[in-house]
């Protein structure tokens, strides 16, 4: 029997979506509120966006966030690509164990990772700064970047690489001319996913950020302790916008190249 025919499926689905999206909708609406008290609507205004874009603390936090996300995305995607290619290249003993370990960070509670990372930095004597944030982000972004790339590799015909070798392409050329172009969509989705995850991270960043390494989520958390301000609504709405933009981009890329 088709599950869609069960009575009450439709209202439950609506309830589910409302639960997910109404709070976000409220946040977006209130970010355009003219009133300083965030919860009372008095009219439409772009004041808070203007305030956000002229607040130096916010701008420097945004800059930090972009630097961290950019660097972590680059590093984690590179490592994830190498890892995925290596894993696909040949079967070896304990391969499934390695696969499991690679995906493990996805299920380890973030707070545990955060404490462990901090402990590690202290043990090796690394001073907390923007660099430690980048290192930590790189690490937890790897599985997110790895999964789409791995999925893409698994969909590839393994004889393509052999065909390239058969036609006189050495390993490096075969990788550049055949493997890389075919993996590209997977690499891009992996990178976009890593970027969003990094941009959004709070817990780990909070633990390993040094002075002057405030990122947007940390800034928002700090300012919210003084009450929800319309400015915070505006930043959050902007971050949401960026995330949606990237997810759509990844989706469209997947469509175009998967024809």
């Amino acid at each position: 029997m088709d599950i869609r025919r069960f009575p009450g499926t439709r209202p439950i689905a609506w309830l589910f979506f409302a639960y997910l999206y109404v709070p976000i909708l409220i946040l977006i609406v209130l970010s355009f509120n003219a009133n300083r008290t965030a919860t009372i609507w008095t009219g439409f205004s772009l004041d808070w966006y203007r305030a956000v874009l002229s607040n130096n603390d916010i701008l420097s936090a945004a800059e930090n966030s972009l630097i961290v996300a950019g660097a972590a995305t680059l590093a984690s995607t590179l490592l994830a690509t190498l890892g995925a290619v290596g894993m696909a290249r040949r079967r070896f003993k304990g391969q499934s164990a390695v696969s499991a370990v690679l995906a493990l960070p996805l299920v380890v509670p973030e707070i545990v990772t955060a404490v462990a990372t901090l402990l590690f930095f202290i043990l090796v004597g690394l001073k907390l700064s923007l660099v430690t944030v980048i290192i930590a982000h790189t690490v937890f972004c790897i599985p997110f970047a790895y999964l789409p790339i791995r999925a893409r590799i698994e969909g590839l015909d393994p004889s393509l690489g052999e065909a390239a070798a058969d036609l006189y392409a050495n390993e490096l050329v075969a990788f550049r001319r055949i493997t890389l172009p075919l993996l590209w969509p997977g690499i891009l989705s992996g990178a976009i996913l890593a970027f969003i995850i990094s941009l959004d991270d709070f817990v780990i960043t909070y633990f390993v950020a040094g002075p002057g390494a405030t990122t947007l989520p940390i800034y928002i958390f700090g300012s919210i302790r003084m009450g929800i301000s319309p400015e915070v609504n505006a930043i959050s709405a902007l971050m949401l916008f960026i995330s949606i933009l990237f997810v759509s981009l990844s989706h469209i890329l997947g469509r175009v190249t998967n024809r």
Binding site: S159, A163, A165
Partner: peptide
């Protein structure tokens, strides 16, 4: 000898055509 050094070419059972290339690009590859 590595496969790319042998004067031997293969027609694969799955054809293994390069999907991101045109017919002419495939034939020109070697």
């Amino acid at each position: 000898q590595a496969p790319y050094r042998r004067p031997v070419n293969t027609v694969f059972q799955s054809y293994a055509l390069f999907p991101h290339m045109t017919v002419a690009e495939n034939v020109r590859f070697g």
